[in-house]
Write a protein that binds this DNA or RNA. Sequence first.
DNA 1: TGTACATCAGTGAACGCGCGTTCACTGATGTAC
DNA 2: TGTACATCAGTGAACGCGCGTTCACTGATGTAC
Lengths: 222, 222
Amino acid sequence: MAPPITPLEWVRPPQQARSQQTLERILRAAEALIAEKGVEQTTVAEIARRAESSVGACYARFADKEALLRSVFERFFEQAAATAESVLAPERWHGQPTADVVASLVSFMLRTYRDRRGLIVGLALRAAREPELAGFGERLGTIVAERVYALLEARGEVLDHPRPKEAVHFCVWLVLSALEARALHSTQLAPPISEDCIAEELVRVALAYLGLAPAEATPLTT
Amino acid sequence: MAPPITPLEWVRPPQQARSQQTLERILRAAEALIAEKGVEQTTVAEIARRAESSVGACYARFADKEALLRSVFERFFEQAAATAESVLAPERWHGQPTADVVASLVSFMLRTYRDRRGLIVGLALRAAREPELAGFGERLGTIVAERVYALLEARGEVLDHPRPKEAVHFCVWLVLSALEARALHSTQLAPPISEDCIAEELVRVALAYLGLAPAEATPLTT
DNA sequence: TGTACATCAGTGAACGCGCGTTCACTGATGTAC
DNA sequence: TGTACATCAGTGAACGCGCGTTCACTGATGTAC
């Protein structure tokens, strides 16, 4: 058998690559618009325009608008999960007191919820109607909780709670709930409490609930 | 000056009473529909039908649909505030350990969020867009926090926190955020944690954060 | 007491707008012979 | 190499539906003389 001369990998990739790029542009445009003006205000026509594509192209890739949005949020969850795994790797925190680790994690989450607020709010609103999205969120919470627990375990921390694993899960859920509520309702007019203040109190809550030692009175390095 | 013979209070009340009743029916119908099928699915036409009134009658009382919904939520907030004041009266809790008081309050809130879930979710979704509604929520939180603080103070509790008043406010906010998130996202398909379990952990969080003594190992009376 | 008119409250068909979705069409690229 | 045809990807005007809002109209009640 003579091997084929034309390399098989190159059969018809230009077309596929082209449509792949279109899809990528559509998803990016949708994400940007949701972040800027909210899910409710984002129309398919506008997504198409922003993606320098057309309405029909959107419907060639997605069954309907729902499916398109689901894809956007799915990508977001994948990124979030990957970020969580990287951030919560025990190696990253060698030599730092646990209280500081918690403080860093909390302020990182606050920053994330601020920077990606639009998308998160859109997601939260959508997840209130679509159980599938709510399921994504739940799974993400579980992943984060597992990693946090593994991190604490690797550091040899002993939690003051009858069911430590569940306690960590609950604690993660509580913090995420608080951040979500803040993202949803913080009026930009009059911010009730500063971000630093929220961070401080959330850390205090977490440490107190889990029975971890609070930070020394030395200045923290964020 | 001869006093007017016809009592002034009775001038034209029948008409007013009639329209007052219509308005009441409209508000009640709107509330019921929001609770049953969510704000997004509730149309003016359906509200009118349910109230055995007409679309025009709605627009005679309210500038637009927004105003109607705002009225519904305003009433809800008034009820909530009144309930909070009554429930948090120090007299009500004489002779009970603080940990039990907190437990009772938390489980009361959980019950409320379950029973009135539809309305609360609708409100939360709406408040994400309308700063005015978010403001209502904030004010309610402040009221509750003040009453809780007064209650603790009346009981002679000393909180383990540099700014006790702010700590109580934060704690109330945290619990409300958690309940809201739960109401928004709990898939009815697979409840992640039982209500009792959430209650237990929320109490634990609150007590640990505020530095209050946990309950004795005796069975609680709810 | 009777008649004419004014006001209040309400009715619901019709209007209009926004937006998701469809579909007849175009252009580019690939394939057969 | 050239011609005819097939497929892929995309285009955007047109359609249709849902729903908030309006408005010409009805009926009941009150007021003037």
